[in-house]
C-alpha cells in the first residue's frame, strides 16, 4: 500500500534559503529574533543598556519569571494552569524562616518548605483532577487562601532572611546567582520535556486526553505531578528572591510574578490550548519581557506604559505564533 503524503514540501532555492527555511520552522525562532532585535534597539538608543550593572538588573527580573514559567509551561502543555503559584512564592520563604527560627539548619528548613509547596501543588492537582474543578477556578481559590495564610502567619510584616553570607550568596544574593538557578531550571525542564517519558506523556495528556488514557497513560498522575512541580518551583523562586533582597515580604510575588511567568510561556510559543509548548521559548519569553521593561525604564517610560507594552507584546506574540505555526505545519519534513 502506498499512502502518499499531502503535498507539503516547499522547494528551497539554495543552501542559505534552506537554512533560513529550517530556522523559520524552528519553534523558538520568531521569539529569539524579537529578543535580539529588542536588545539591539535598546543598546542603540541607550548605551548603558549592555553594561554589566544593567545586565545584572535585567537578569534578576528575568530569573524569577523564567523559573516559574518552567512549571507553568508544563501545566499549560497538559491542559492546566496554576494561578496560585505567586502566593506559594510568598509563603515558601516564611515557612523556611519558621524552620530556621525553630533551630533547623537552613537547608533542612528550605527542603521542608519545598515539601510543603509540593503538598499545595498536590492539593491543587487533586481538586482539579479528582474533584473535577477547572484548574483556573481551583487555583483562584487557593490563591486567596494562600495569600490569607501568608498574611496571617507573618502578621503582615516582613522579616530578615538571616543565615550565613555564603548561603545567602548561593541562594540569590550574589549578582548572577538567580539567573544561574534559572538557567539550571530551564536546562533540566527542557530535558524533561523533550527527552523523558514524563515530558512525552505531558504532551500526550494535553494533546489528546482520552487517547492518552486509552494508551494506558495515567493522566491524573501527569497532571497532579505538574501541579506539584509548579508549586515547588514557585516556592524555590520565592526563597531565592527573598535571599536576593535580604528580606521576606508577605506581599512579594503574587499575581504579578504569576502572570509574568504565564506571559513568558505564551510569548515564548506555548499555546493555552495544551498539547504543545517549549521551555526554551519560555526563557526567551521571559528575556523579552525583561528587556522590554528594563529598556523602557532606561528610556524613562513609566510603569503604567509598561503594562500597555506587555499586553501588546502578548497579543503580537500569540498572533505571530498562530500564523507562523500554520506556516510550520504547512511545511514539509
Amino acid at each position: 500500500m502506498s499512502l502518499k503524503p499531502t503535498p507539503v514540501s516547499r522547494a528551497s532555492p539554495n543552501r542559505a534559503g534552506a537554512t533560513l527555511d529550517a530556522f523559520l520552522r524552528w519553534r523558538e525562532a520568531s521569539i529569539i529574533v524579537v529578543a535580539i532585535l529588542l536588545t539591539i534597539y535598546f543598546q542603540a538608543v541607550n548605551e548603558n543598556f549592555l553594561t554589566s550593572a544593567n545586565l545584572e538588573t535585567v537578569s534578576q527580573f528575568i530569573a524569577a519569571s523564567a523559573i516559574i514559567a518552567c512549571g507553568e509551561v508544563m501545566l499549560l502543555i497538559c491542559g492546566e494552569i496554576d494561578l496560585s503559584v505567586g502566593q506559594v512564592f510568598a509563603l515558601a520563604p516564611f515557612l523556611m524562616h519558621f524552620g530556621t527560627n525553630a533551630g533547623l539548619p537552613i537547608i533542612v528548613a528550605i527542603l521542608l518548605a519545598l515539601v510543603a509547596c509540593g503538598l499545595i501543588g498536590a492539593i491543587n492537582g487533586f481538586i482539579t483532577v479528582k474533584l473535577r474543578v477547572p484548574s483556573f477556578v481551583t487555583t483562584l481559590g487557593t490563591l486567596y487562601i494562600l495569600n490569607g495564610v501568608t498574611l496571617t502567619l507573618s502578621h503582615g510584616s516582613p522579616v530578615e532572611t538571616g543565615g550565613s553570607e555564603a548561603m545567602g550568596n548561593f541562594l540569590g544574593a550574589s549578582p548572577y546567582a538567580e539567573i544561574l538557578w534559572a538557567f539550571a531550571a530551564v536546562a533540566v525542564m527542557h530535558y524533561v520535556l523533550r527527552q523523558t517519558r514524563w515530558g512525552l506523556h505531558t504532551i500526550a495528556t494535553g494533546g489528546n486526553l482520552i487517547g492518552a488514557a486509552e494508551a494506558g497513560i495515567n493522566v491524573a498522575r501527569i497532571k497532579i505531578g505538574n501541579f506539584v512541580l509548579t508549586s515547588v518551583l514557585g516556592g524555590l523562586t520565592g526563597i531565592l528572591e527573598a535571599h536576593r533582597i535580604g528580606s521576606i515580604d508577605p506581599l512579594a510575588g503574587g499575581t504579578t510574578v504569576m502572570f509574568l511567568a504565564v506571559a513568558a510561556g505564551v510569548i515564548g510559543g506555548t499555546p493555552l490550548a495544551g498539547g504543545s509548548g517549549t521551555i526554551i521559548g519560555a526563557l526567551v519569553g521571559a528575556i523579552v519581557l525583561g528587556v522590554l521593561r528594563d529598556g523602557f525604564t532606561l528610556q524613562g517610560i513609566n510603569a503604567y506604559t509598561f503594562d500597555i507594552i506587555i499586553g501588546a507584546a502578548i497579543l503580537l506574540a500569540m498572533i505571530s505564533n498562530i500564523h507562523l505555526g500554520r506556516l510550520r505545519r504547512g511545511g514539509g519534513r
Binding site: 512525552l200 506523556h201 504532551i203 500526550a204 494533546g207 489528546n208 482520552i210 487517547g211 492518552a212 486509552e214 494508551a215 494506558g216 497513560i217 498539547g275 504543545s276
Partner: peptide, 19 residues
C-alpha cells in the same frame, strides 16, 4: 479506537510507542 488515540503534536514514531 475510533478516535485512534493518536496525539497530533507528536511524531509518528512517538505515537507508535506511546506509553
Amino acid at each position: 479506537y475510533q478516535d485512534l488515540a493518536l496525539v497530533g503534536g507528536l511524531s509518528v514514531a512517538h505515537n507508535m510507542f506511546l506509553n
